[in-house]
Design a protein around this nucleic acid. Sequence first.
DNA 1: ATTATATTGCAACGTGGTTGCATTTGTCAA
DNA 2: TTGACAAATGCAACCACGTTGCAATATAAT
Lengths: 139, 139
Amino acid sequence: MAHQILKALKDKGFRLTKVRKLIIEIFLSNSAAPISAVELKARLMAADADANKTTVYRELDFLSEQGIVVEVNAGDGKKRYELNRDGHHHHILCLRCSAVECVTVDNCTLQEELKRVDSKSFKITGHSLNFFGLCEECQ
Amino acid sequence: MAHQILKALKDKGFRLTKVRKLIIEIFLSNSAAPISAVELKARLMAADADANKTTVYRELDFLSEQGIVVEVNAGDGKKRYELNRDGHHHHILCLRCSAVECVTVDNCTLQEELKRVDSKSFKITGHSLNFFGLCEECQ
DNA sequence: ATTATATTGCAACGTGGTTGCATTTGTCAA
DNA sequence: TTGACAAATGCAACCACGTTGCAATATAAT
């Protein structure tokens, strides 16, 4: 899995640096929740591969542009990112500790609503649905 | 309309300052789109009642606690606020210029989804649905 | 090993937002 | 009308998240 991503990047002329490879591994082994730049930096540090914060932000932008990760708006003022798996899903966010979890809504009817809204002046390209509440620990 | 809000605040022992009254007026005459602290500050300045940014942020927190305004998560990293009218609605956000508009989705089925999600470990208290796209001007 | 350039680190900056503390200002009661 | 008390304000300094310019470093092809 990681190999395919890495090969694709290399074929496009990008370099496979330690940090880049490690970040991709982290995303691959982190299916649970979208992570922020700060969290990612901490994980890198924990993996003995400290990287400058500028590098972390730039790498996230890069992976985002390459379509490897996607930005998740969790509504807590921080950008979060998760692996760009297919499969439409949404997020639950804890209002106290900011924990984020992915939720699959079985028959998501939002695509229909989207069409209805799209007829207005706005040209809709996507949507973001977040559920807010308290996680198990914070209740 | 403004009188009721002001009276309620006074009855609770809060003071009716120039800035507070003006902010409430601004929210009342601004049904279109949620506004940010920075925008509100600019409006106050335009109305010849400049207020320190600290005051603006504190006043927004205050009106939020009092249930007069509600925070709207527009996903652009800024907190936005709008008058707490009843009537469930969502928002469209322009990805380029960050314009925000309110949208009413006719038969919002999210309340049902909410119940389904609520049965999990998270205790859901609300949700936020944003449509992203490009506004008329930015297309 | 050499070289071109993609990537990194650093330091400085920008914005949105918060805090502690001294000062001002509504409001109420005398 | 005048105090007086507490609510509200301004200021300056601070914080977190994120960005930018530029010099230094490292990957990968030759």
